[in-house]
Design a protein around this nucleic acid. Structure first.
Lengths: 149, 149
DNA sequence: GCTGTATAGTTTGATAGTCAAACAATTTGA
DNA sequence: TCAAATTGTTTGACTATCAAACTATACAGC
């Protein structure tokens, strides 16, 4: 029970630390004209195939209207390309421009380093155990009904 | 290396899921006139001794100006008591009112349930190992210099 | 082929969250 | 006693967010 309290504090602290590190990583880096939020949009678009606005908005759990605004700035600043689909002219296709791909890589690097810091503290088996436990936990959280209020 | 990628995805997913659950827990509950943000302010004030604005703003890593606005609403809605200190009239002391304490308990319950879900997947030793690892990780992240860009 | 309905995005209006800088009140120390 | 430091509030500017109104396009049934 005491352990549970300790774990709670640890998780909360970890959450805050990671968010604040993400921000600092941005501020100090090359990409000072975008926010954390913008970065998450870039992350959701990804370096691969172009994606529709709806798809990206879905990934981020925001409305399409919200996304439109974020993309306004990102495309104005040369991170994201916004073009109408030829096949279906209702669709807007979003993809990363050169600068956007560099920002993506930059952020990925940050994540990688963080994960390495985690993994280096576990031996191989333990890391796999951790991965399985996280999977379980996510499944459990998504199951939903148990966490109430 | 593949494991690292998997862990990265798992952490990102877990982050998003927890945030979205926190929001849903609020929306469905008794406290519909406050946001997640407000809840975090309530959490930082805590049920104990009154705290100064600066202290609370520090905990949340926001400016005092930002906090002032959040507290405007929270005190208007009967969650937080704001009073000038008698000892030093520059200080503003923040404490939870009855409704604020109930909101606090509500949110704590949510965290508790979540932690229980984690712990139930580990035996005692493993949970302790996890706690130690998280501590290590936090220490490492705070050390700073290693995570760069 | 029309026409009405569905779908995809954008725009608008409102509210929240954020910071930096200007400001006001109070304390402290020289 | 008065200048400097401390603590908060206010202001101005910008971002983030949603719901609802709106626009443009596609599709389905006649």
């Amino acid at each position: 029970m005491d352990l549970e309290k300790a774990l709670n504090t640890l998780f909360v602290t970890l959450f805050q630390d990671i968010l604040s590190l993400e921000e600092k990583a941005l501020i100090r880096g090359e990409f000072q004209d975008i926010t954390i939020n913008d970065m998450h949009v870039i992350e959701a678009i990804g370096p691969g195939e172009a994606q529709t606005s709806s798809t990206v908005a879905g990934k981020l759990s925001v409305t399409v209207g919200t996304l439109t605004k974020a993309v306004d700035r990102l495309s104005r600043n040369g991170y994201v390309l916004r073009e109408r689909s030829e096949d279906d002219k209702r669709l807007v296709l979003l993809s990363l421009m050169e600068k956007g791909r560099r920002a993506y890589a930059h952020h990925q690097k940050f994540h990688e380093n963080m994960i390495k810091a985690v993994v280096s503290r576990f031996d191989g088996e333990e890391a796999e155990f951790l991965a399985r436990s996280l999977e379980d936990l996510i499944g459990y959280l998504r199951g939903g009904t148990d966490i109430k209020l």
